[in-house]
Design a protein around this nucleic acid. Structure first.
Lengths: 236, 236
DNA sequence: CGGTACGTTGAGTCATATCAACCATAGTGG
DNA sequence: CCACTATGGTTGATATGACTCAACGTACCG
């Protein structure tokens, strides 16, 4: 098993572990995927692709964290989503056959597989279950985008910051000391919420004063989820 | 041709005319679609479906205009998109197998066909070209949603209003007197831009003072597209 | 040691929301 | 036919959330 010696993940293993998009491929298709893919390692700060690029394939994350963002008129980043173990990125532009509308940058060192476009298209054509899974994925993301649009348009920065903290808890979880497992700069936090860095800082220290969070450098300890829910006006 | 006597559109004709999503169905599939669909007529103000509903099918618009919106925490609508001739709506929740995350309301009287979910799923399973078309559609919409998120997060209300006017010009066009073909209330305009009704009114009259538009009740005459582009900071 | 990136705080400004009043129009019912 | 009501549009006054700018602290790194 040369691959395992080199720590290159096997797609079969990966797709099982992560309950990822490739779970419904046949074993032949999985083998093909495994054969065609290109294993890559990236460090924090590395760029996987840039908006405006034509992309010849997409990425499947084996581990680490990547931020997917769009650059606005004045160069400010808007973070659209994060990708982690089992997620795929850049599939949107591959499938819509458009130029990349986002860029992707590494937040935590990661191992990813690059998979050529053709293989994705061929799976869609031959495996209708996979096609349906992919449609579901895109449609689900679309639903999330719609929610996000409504939030940004209607909620205050304070509400949105609380909501984003909860979302990060949901997506990345807390360690046994209740610290958020993902660690972001204040600027990155601002670029999710859609506000200025200073505003995030001020609001975070308000949250701290209200005993909702504790702050240790970049690490955020979540003390009061109910309180954050109340502020964020999420009903669920 | 009983259908034509009743003015029920034939899917074959419809999909050709509109270059719509069903263009790559086989003629058998088109016949099936035509047989299974349910023709409906709606008036301005009618609701096609509401967020939270479980939807048993989706709608294909034959004519008229529909707004797709999401209701925020305090009941304010956020318009996500418009649907017109050839567009399909509610496919997102059908395909992601989730509850509707948006509502749809008629803006201009329309004829639509309601198509049961199963038929969509079955086409995806048997016709891979159609599946790919659908994926492309969803992915394209996702790209637009990402742009919109970035705009709302980073641009001013003034920039966004100018941008939305241009978008409406693009999507619905101008009549021979340069009036926007779609007519919206000020409140609806505000609910696209993501602002207060009064702000739209004030900005529109600024635009009028700057000779960018002319206002005749609900009708908006577009005088200076270049000027609006400049304000909106769109680069293309 | 200087340089760079990030974090924090304060002060001032401005765009936008909010609240309130008022007008125009159209439809309704007695 | 008129008063009544509802809906949408407009304008003004006021409040304020959030941004910007600037200064400074801190930590890490070569």
């Amino acid at each position: 098993m040369k691959q395992q010696e080199n720590n290159i993940p096997l797609c079969a293993k990966c797709s099982l572990e992560s309950n990822g998009i490739f779970r419904n491929l046949t074993s032949e298709e999985t083998d093909l995927l495994n054969f065609e893919k290109d294993f890559r390692q990236y460090k924090r700060g590395d760029i996987l692709y840039r908006e405006g690029n034509r992309i010849s394939g997409f990425f499947c994350i084996n581990n680490g964290i990547i931020k997917v963002f769009k650059t606005g008129f004045d160069g400010k980043e808007q973070i659209i989503r994060f990708a982690r173990k089992g997620d795929i990125i850049a599939y949107r532009s591959v499938l819509s056959n458009e130029l990349a509308c986002t860029s992707a940058k590494v937040i935590e060192d990661c191992n990813v597989c690059f998979i050529p476009s053709e293989i994705l298209i061929s799976f869609i054509k031959t495996n209708s279950t996979f096609a349906l899974d992919l449609i579901k994925l895109a449609c689900h993301e679309l639903g999330e985008a719609n929610s996000f649009i409504t939030d940004i348009a209607q909620k205050t920065v304070r509400e949105r910051l609380a909501e984003i903290l909860l979302l990060l808890v949901n997506d990345f979880g807390l360690d046994n000391e209740k610290y958020l497992k993902i660690s972001l700069t204040r600027e990155e936090l601002a670029n999710i919420v859609g506000t200025a860095t200073e505003s995030v800082i001020r609001l975070l220290s308000e949250f701290k004063a209200d005993k909702l969070v504790e702050l240790t450098g970049r690490k955020i300890k979540i003390l009061d989820i109910k309180g954050l829910e109340k502020i964020s006006n999420v009903y669920n």
